[in-house]
Amino acid sequence: MWYYRSKKDDSEVIEKLNQLAESHPTRGFDEYFGRIWQQGLKWNRKRVLRVYRAMKLGLRRKRK
Rank of each mutant, 00 (worst) to 15 (best):
R53P: 00
E15A: 15
W37S: 13
P25A: 01
L57K: 03
L20N: 02
R50H: 10
G58Y: 12
S6P: 03
K56T: 04
M55N: 03
L59S: 09
R45G: 01
L20F: 01
Q19T: 11
Y3S: 11
R61F: 07
L57T: 08
K46N: 14
M55A: 03
I14Q: 12
S6G: 06
Y52F: 15
R27F: 01
L20G: 04
R35S: 07
S11T: 14
L20P: 00
G58H: 15
G34S: 12
R47N: 11
V48S: 10
D30K: 06
R45M: 05
K42M: 05
V51Q: 06
L17C: 10
K62E: 12
E31M: 01
L17K: 03
K46C: 07
Q39P: 00
S11V: 04
F29T: 06
K62M: 10
K42T: 09
L20I: 08
R53N: 14
D9R: 11
Y32I: 06
D30P: 00
Q19F: 09
K56L: 07
M55R: 08
N44A: 12
R27L: 13
K46L: 10
Y52K: 06
P25C: 04
R53K: 15
R63Y: 11
L20Y: 01
Q38A: 15
R5Q: 13
L49Y: 15
R27T: 04
G40L: 05
G40P: 05
L41K: 14
I14M: 08
Q38W: 04
A21I: 04
P25G: 06
M55W: 07
K16H: 02
R35E: 14
K62N: 11
D30Y: 05
K42W: 01
A21C: 07
S6W: 00
A21Q: 12
I36K: 03
K64I: 05
K8P: 00
Q19G: 14
W2S: 13
Y32W: 06
R5E: 13
V51D: 02
D30Q: 12
E22Q: 13
W2V: 13
K46G: 14
V13R: 02
D30G: 08
R61M: 06
G28F: 02
V48Q: 05
A21V: 07
W37H: 04
R53H: 14
K42N: 11
H24G: 00
L20V: 08
R27S: 06
S6T: 12
S23D: 11
L59F: 09
Y3F: 08
R53I: 08
E22W: 02
L20M: 07
G34D: 11
K8W: 03
A21P: 00
M1A: 14
Y4D: 06
R5Y: 12
K7A: 10
E15Q: 13
R27G: 00
E12D: 14
F29A: 05
R60N: 09
G34A: 09
R45C: 03
F33H: 15
W2L: 11
R50S: 13
G40T: 04
N44P: 03
P25F: 10
S23K: 15
A21N: 10
E15H: 08
V48A: 03
S23R: 13
D30R: 10
R47T: 15
R53W: 02
N18V: 02
L41T: 07
G28Q: 09
